[in-house]
């Protein structure tokens, strides 16, 4: 399968209200969300968003409710029209597509999973899964064959003829996932897809998604309000507040160097052992002769476990070919795991 194409979002603005276009300049000149609402009765949804979403990776957009994250994801398949800016998929600007082009783009390039599942209640699991292919005009027996594979893959074999409201929330979202995957689109948009599920099921679904991504390498845009979920899934994370991106980077970058007090407040509670790589903490200035070795690229928590199991107090961090590239001590590991970075 060819590498999935990334998505480039460039100076995207969304202002809700009758004269959104005229308000863009005011926002560019530095007017705040509160002021815009008070003086002109327009709501600033998105403020100068620039995100480069890498192809074949999971881009997480995180923010609390009202931060504009759901608005942002709806710009990628243009369920919401932007006030200004560009959403580039390869060389195409989604914002400039005609209705027909947009429909084709949605049919073949994107698939979406929703927070409230949004399944068709009058259709069985199988008929829900084939929906995307059905409206593309794929022959029914071929569509069902393709859907059956994904229904099995998300663990719903045997439930093909059930209706959605005969299933639990977790299973319904598996149907949502199967429906999106059956479309075989490049881009998978997940709008708080797991937020409505209870914690154990959510972990379970995250694992399903990560396993699938291992083999599929789609461009996934995942919206969440949960930092743990963001850190677990995201190859890249963008944090949104009041419609603006306040920080983006890998999970480790955000945990180690929060951009402002708001984010450091967030990351304080995070299990840092699962986010920080041994590579970040190791002492690169020396190596050990023999002794314990830990592969590079693992998280601190795993290293700590190795220390606990062996009783060693320091270890070589080794690269892919087994050559030592630095030393990790128990002391450094524990320090990095328990000290939150302050802004």
């Amino acid at each position: 399968m060819a590498e999935a194409t990334g998505i480039e979002i460039k100076s995207l603005y969304k202002i809700f209200g009758p004269n959104g276009k005229e308000m863009v300049q005011k926002v560019k000149d530095g007017m705040s969300k509160a002021e815009l609402n008070e003086k002109f009765n327009h709501v600033l949804g998105l403020n100068d968003i620039n995100i480069s979403m890498p192809g074949g990776k999971i881009q997480v957009v995180m923010g609390l409710s009202g931060s504009g994250k759901s608005t942002l994801i709806r710009h990628i398949n243009r369920l919401i029209d932007p006030t200004a800016g560009e959403v580039l998929y390869g060389s195409e600007d989604v914002c400039k597509m005609s209705p027909t082009e947009l429909r084709e783009f949605r049919r073949h390039k994107t698939a979406m999973v929703f927070q409230k599942f949004a399944l068709l209640p009058h259709r069985t699991v199988m008929k829900n899964a084939v929906y995307g292919l059905e409206i593309q005009g794929v022959a029914m027996n071929e569509a069902e064959e393709r859907a059956a594979r994904w229904i099995d893959r998300v663990g719903l074999e045997g439930f093909e003829d059930h209706y959605p409201n005969q299933l639990s929330g977790g299973m319904q979202q598996r149907v949502g996932l199967a429906r999106a995957l059956t479309n075989d689109a490049d881009i998978l948009l997940m709008d708080e897809a797991f937020s409505a599920l209870d914690p154990l099921i959510r972990m379970d679904m995250q694992t399903v998604l990560l396993d699938l991504q291992e083999e599929l390498h789609k461009t996934i845009v995942f919206i969440t309000h949960d930092l743990d979920e963001a850190l677990r899934l995201g190859d890249k994370i963008a944090i949104l507040r009041d419609g603006a991106v306040i920080q983006q980077g890998t999970g480790q970058e955000i945990v180690l160097r929060p951009a402002d007090a708001y984010i450091s407040e967030f990351v304080k509670e995070v299990n840092r052992g699962r986010v920080i790589l041994v590579d970040t903490v190791m002492d690169q200035s020396r190596t050990l002769e023999g002794g314990l070795s830990i592969p590079h690229g693992v998280m601190l928590e795993e290293a700590a476990k190795t220390f606990a199991d062996t009783g060693a107090s320091e270890a070589n961090v080794v690269n892919g070919s087994g050559a030592p590239i630095g030393v990790l001590t128990v002391q450094d590991t524990i320090t990095a795991m328990v000290t939150p970075a302050s802004h």
Partner: peptide, 22 residues
Amino acid sequence: DQDVLEAADAFGSSPRQKLLNV
């Protein structure tokens, strides 16, 4: 339900398909 309609849109339904299927 607006959510279901949005899903139909997101998968690229034409207005006619949306009417008949949803």
